[in-house]
Design a protein around this nucleic acid. Structure first.
Lengths: 185, 185
DNA sequence: CAGTATATGTGCATTACTGAACAAATCAAT
DNA sequence: ATTGATTTGTTCAGTAATGCACATATACTG
């Protein structure tokens, strides 16, 4: 995939979309362990064999689903890296909102425990370039400590916002979190 | 198709559903003449060739779409023929409501003029068995006159209800129309 | 009018999806 | 433990959908 964006067959995309959608819907009212491949194929209105055509098993499906969202968020981060913390946070919360079903499911108590850690890991990676303990208000702090402080609070805020049904609109969250980030970075 | 309900390939159903849905959506904000096959395939996310696999042209598509709904309504009529006019009307208006997009589009001023006549023709066929001018309150009336009277009013009521955004819920309409039918049949 | 673009309908080789069958693994309950 | 029922993962031949090319027809436009 160096320069070959040779358009994927639309049947592949449609099948994968249907499968992922069905899986998410099942996740929202069933435990991951209780979901069978048959459940997914029934709900997605897709042959059972088609699922194996794209995913090794349901763990692979979950991982790829998570991976795709992490990737999308990575893109958003990079395309907003030039903006200030207020403006830069908006596409972030907008993305969270537009994929509410995914995030609420993954962050639910019986959701996907692996998501939380992958999410945290991703944020550490992204914020690493932002922190500066060589000068300014954070001079003298350990980089890893500050980084952990920021990321933990960010994950916490997101988790709270999602699991509480998004009590504030994205632009309000973006602004508030922007203030808090600016204060600490 | 005597007793061979040998299940249709789900790909066929999915494609046809997508095509019909796309076509209806386009009809709701475009004139029929201005809709191209390309428009439909784009919106349905289906190859242009796939449309020709199922329909000869867009006229055929429209006719089959109308035909299917007429057929569904025929089934409803027959399965409700034992009920009184009040109860029997409920599944009717429920069906109209659940396919609001279709009926509102077809009955719109620039909709499908052919639908109105097919609709009327269908109703005449169905009501023909109901009218009785040999005795009772309608003794002495010409059957064709009474039939035309009933059907015209029925079409008119439906058209009004749909194009005015369904101002009353189905069960109210069923009851009201039930009273009016009983008075004239 | 010529010329250009867009839409149509058809044919075809390739591809993804399908249903069915199968053996193996897992689970449930006796 | 031993049944019996699901679920799993794989294989395979058949089928529908795909993209592309092509010729034709039908607008637009200068």
């Amino acid at each position: 995939m160096i320069l070959t964006m040779s358009k994927v067959d639309r049947r592949i995309l449609k099948s994968q979309e249907a499968i992922k959608k069905a899986f998410l819907e099942l996740m929202s009212d069933k435990n991951f362990d209780d979901i069978t491949i048959q459940d997914i194929s029934d709900r997605a209105n897709v042959s059972r064999g088609t699922i194996y055509l794209h995913y090794a098993d349901k763990f692979d499906l979950l991982n790829k689903l998570i991976g795709e969202h992490i990737n999308e968020m990575r893109k958003i981060c990079h395309s907003a890296s030039e903006l200030d913390y207020h403006e830069g946070n908006l596409p972030w919360f907008a993305y969270l909102e537009s994929h509410y079903l995914f995030f609420s499911t993954m962050l639910a108590s019986k959701g996907a425990p692996s998501f939380r850690s992958q999410f945290t890991e991703f944020l550490i990676e992204e914020f690493k370039e932002e922190v500066d303990t060589t000068a300014g208000k954070n001079h003298g702090l350990h980089e890893d400590v500050l980084l952990q402080f920021i990321v933990t609070s960010y994950v916490g805020i997101v988790e709270w916002w999602i699991t509480n049904g998004m009590p504030h609109p994205p632009h309000v969250m973006a602004e508030q979190v922007g203030v808090l980030l600016e204060r600490n970075l």
